[in-house]
């Protein structure tokens, strides 16, 4: 586990940093909108991880083109589908969470969580 391993695999390291930052944001931020931003940061970290899994050094996008030479390396197309599904899911969850926050704002007049708990 030398330090150069961290340097070579930098997409994975950054993805884990983003994921942990997103998790911390969801759990500790007091403003509700910042929690939703935390969800998005966490999901972005996960998608970065998937891209790093699927990428092949020196590969081209996986679309068939008769002009390219034989024996060329294509990037893994399965990973692309997984990320697309994940993005759609993340978008739906963000939209739903924001709709609920709008409703909470109508009820309580604030988006700051400790005030909401105090008002209950």
């Amino acid at each position: 586990m030398e330090l150069s391993m961290l340097w070579v695999n930098y997409p994975y390291v950054i993805s884990i940093i983003l994921f942990s930052m997103g998790c911390l944001c969801i759990l500790t931020q007091h403003n509700l909108i910042k929690k939703v931003i935390g969800i998005n940061i966490m999901e972005t970290g996960i998608f970065l991880f998937y891209v790093a899994v699927g990428n092949i050094k020196g590969g081209v996008p996986p679309i068939y083109d008769p002009n390219l030479p034989e024996g060329i390396l294509y990037v893994n197309p399965l990973v692309d589908v997984l990320i697309l599904t994940g993005i759609v899911v993340s978008f739906s969850v963000t939209a739903f969470a924001l709709a609920i926050i709008v409703k909470l704002y109508y009820f309580y007049g604030t988006v700051y969580a400790p005030n909401i708990i105090r008002m209950r």
């Binding site: 997103g22 969801i26 929690k35 966490m42 969850v93 969470a97």
Partner: peptide
């Protein structure tokens, strides 16, 4: 929020 954390 917690369910999204879990599915992440």
């Amino acid at each position: 929020m917690l369910a999204t954390l879990g599915s992440g």
